[in-house]
């Protein structure tokens, strides 16, 4: 009896059980710990905040107990939320453009290096990925503070080049959107360089040489030959910077201006300080909707890039 059951079990395992286990274990895990929390956010966004200190601070009631859009309505009525959303988009966008302006020449420069140098430099670009994100933000806090050597250096330069009336004792860098963008560029620059490098490295150098032989000047070669071919890399790198930067919490909390917060910080404050779960959930859903568009663009270009080599001879 036991042996019979055992052989039935092993038959099931050999036939399809092994693959069922491999599929279902991560599937169930993600359903439980990723999808379910996400659904909870969507449901709670429709609920009403309650002020009980112990129980989860949300409930159902009011005029529309099931589909309550009060949270979303407040999102559009209260200026704070829309302003935070716009601040986030602007900060992330400016950081993305600056990353592109710095990262593109760096990636292009890497492709022109000898391969042993190139590997070392690539390693140096990837290395910050592995070291603590928090500490990289912290390193800039030390650089930007009013009495730091970096701030004093910049202040001296400023006082030297500007007329006397403009002299300042220090440059107010910390707790501003400037600081947020600067640190974003610092932490997300590798996300721009690596996809751009991967794209530029695959380009055919004979095209450059042909254009050079035909008398095109170096900048003309870049503008007419290299740049159009690197658009997939620009889009991939740009979105890899924009998407995480727009939902950032650590950077605006540490170096940002509390007066014009980014959306991530607003979500966190609504949730933890105000204990307003429905409002925090509504903003979270709004932020996700904002991120759907760039993500769709990204995956569209990714699938196109994956299919491209097949078209080539």
């Amino acid at each position: 009896m036991a042996a019979g059951r055992h052989s039935r079990l092993s038959e099931w395992f050999n036939r399809r059980g092994w693959s069922d286990i491999i599929i279902s274990a991560p599937y169930i895990w993600l359903l439980l710990f990723f999808l379910l929390p996400f659904l909870i956010v969507i449901v709670i966004a429709m609920s009403v905040a309650t002020r009980t200190p112990s129980a989860p601070p949300f409930g159902y009631g009011g005029d529309n107990p099931v589909l309550n859009f009060a949270g979303y309505a407040r999102f559009f009525e209260d200026e704070l939320y829309l302003r935070a959303l716009v601040t986030s988009i602007i900060n992330a966008f400016v950081a993305m453009i600056l990353c592109l302006l710095i990262g593109y020449p760096m990636a292009l420069g890497l492709t022109r290096m000898q391969s042993n140098w190139r590997n070392i430099l690539l390693m140096l670009i990837i290395l910050p990925f592995w070291t603590s994100f928090l500490l990289r933000v912290y390193a800039w806090m030390g650089m930007m503070g009013k009495s730091s050597w970096f701030n004093r250096l910049l202040t001296d330069i400023w006082n030297m080049v500007t007329p006397e009336g403009w002299a300042v004792s220090s440059i107010p860098m910390m707790h501003s959107n400037f600081a947020v963008v600067l640190v974003m560029v610092y932490t997300y620059l590798p996300f721009m360089i690596l996809p751009l490098y991967a794209n530029l490295e695959r380009l055919d150098p004979t095209l450059d040489e042909a254009a050079m032989d035909l008398g095109t000047r170096p900048f003309g070669v870049f503008w007419d030959v290299t740049l159009p071919q690197s658009i997939p890399g620009i889009i991939a790198g740009g979105l890899l910077v924009f998407i995480p930067a727009s939902g950032e919490l650590v950077i605006p909390t540490l170096v940002g201006d509390a007066g014009s917060p980014m959306i991530g910080r607003v979500i966190s404050d609504e949730f933890s300080s105000s204990r307003d779960w429905p409002m925090a959930s509504s903003i979270a859903v709004a932020l996700l909707l904002l991120m759907v568009v760039p993500t769709m663009i990204y995956s569209h270009f990714q699938t196109k890039a994956e299919h491209k080599p097949e078209n080539r001879p």
């Binding site: 991560p26 599937y27 993600l30 359903l31 710990f33 990723f34 999808l35 929390p37 996400f38 909870i40 956010v41 709670i44 989860p56 998407i243 995480p244 727009s246 939902g247 950032e248 919490l249 650590v250 991530g264 979500i267 966190s268 949730f271 779960w277 925090a280 959930s281 979270a284 932020l287 996700l288 991120m291 993500t295 995956s299």
Partner: peptide, 19 residues
């Protein structure tokens, strides 16, 4: 479901897990 967590902002993952 395998790609979504890669782009999910940490704040949202954080509050949804806590909920």
């Amino acid at each position: 479901m395998v790609t979504a967590p890669l782009i999910m902002p940490d704040v949202i993952t954080g509050i949804s897990s806590l909920m």
